[in-house]
């Protein structure tokens, strides 16, 4: 699991780290949305510059971002090649049966490549600089308006934060159960596909049973500490916008305007 960079958090104290998580969540979503409007070399250049600036401000070594790209390489290559050889248009440079290499195709492939790069790196930047629990907080805060249409925002946020908190605990437990089963002679790495799937049952069943027991214990402990579900609660952790969040807002507005200026219509 160690090479898996997505969803991991790197401790730091940079400009990006200190931003309000809501700012980061909204900005990166909005950025990803904007990327689909870029359709000229200049507009892609601008987007890349914006991304590069964000990456530099996070002070996270480039290596981490490259690691984040790694699992996506096949998807990127596949899509780019598809675009390269299957796009029709002008001028045609090379043709063989139904495969064509055209000027439009090359342009499209390059754009798709940059689009992938921009989207993946921006989302990696967000997850690397924001602890998951703050993301959960940000989601709760952003979903607050939905309370008006009777969405149980608090319950969703609580489930999310409990789920996040139990991820490492359950991972540890899975590892423990696996080792315990291995020590009794269950083989997870060999045999046919069918055999391997069958070998997962002695992990899944105890894991489910223990998750039920945990849920029971947790519910009792929560009740004992005065949680009854629908009371008015206060919050210990508070999110607050700072000056730097306003700076980001200004930057993203400027970026949006410039992007629409550079885009070919």
């Amino acid at each position: 699991m160690n090479q898996f960079i997505f969803g991991r958090y790197i401790k730091g104290n940079s400009f990006v780290h200190q931003l309000d998580p809501r700012t980061k969540l909204l900005t990166s979503f909005f950025f990803i949305y904007l990327v689909f409007f870029a359709n000229s070399l200049a507009s892609y250049g601008l987007s890349l510059a914006f991304l590069a600036l964000s990456l530099i401000l996070s002070k996270i070594p480039v290596g981490f971002f490259l690691k984040g790209l790694k699992p996506m390489i096949w998807l990127i290559a596949f899509t780019v090649l598809l675009q390269l050889f299957f796009t029709g248009g002008e001028p045609v440079y090379w043709q063989w049966a139904f495969l064509k290499l055209t000027g439009d195709g090359i342009r499209q492939a390059v754009f798709i490549f940059f689009r992938f790069l921009l989207i993946i790196l921006m989302s990696t930047l967000m997850t690397l600089t924001t602890p998951p629990l703050l993301l959960a907080d940000a989601l709760e805060s952003l979903m607050k308006p939905l309370k008006k249409i009777k969405v149980p925002v608090h319950d969703i946020a609580l489930m999310l934060s409990i789920a996040l908190r139990f991820v490492p605990t359950l991972m540890d437990e899975t590892q423990k159960i696996m080792n315990a089963q291995k020590s009794r002679g269950v083989d997870f790495d060999e045999g046919t596909m069918f055999k391997r799937i069958k070998a997962i049952i002695p992990i899944l069943v105890p894991l489910f049973v223990s998750a039920f027991n945990r849920a029971d214990d947790l519910a009792i402990a929560m009740e004992a500490r005065g949680y009854n579900g629908d009371q008015e609660r206060t919050k210990y952790r508070k999110l607050s916008y700072q000056r730097r969040d306003v700076m980001v807002l200004v930057a993203i507005i400027a970026f949006t305007l410039a992007l629409f200026g550079l885009r070919t219509w």
């Binding site: 998951p132 629990l133 959960a136 934060s161 409990i162 996040l164 908190r165 605990t169 027991n213 945990r214 214990d217 947790l218 402990a221 929560m222 500490r225 005065g226 949680y227 009854n228 009371q231 008015e232 609660r233 206060t234 919050k235 210990y236 952790r237």
Partner: peptide, 22 residues
Amino acid sequence: DNQFVGTTVEDDVAFGLENQAF
């Protein structure tokens, strides 16, 4: 392990206080 509600130590200690709207 099973009675930890909060995602960090301080969040967990605050949980009961939050419930009583401190």
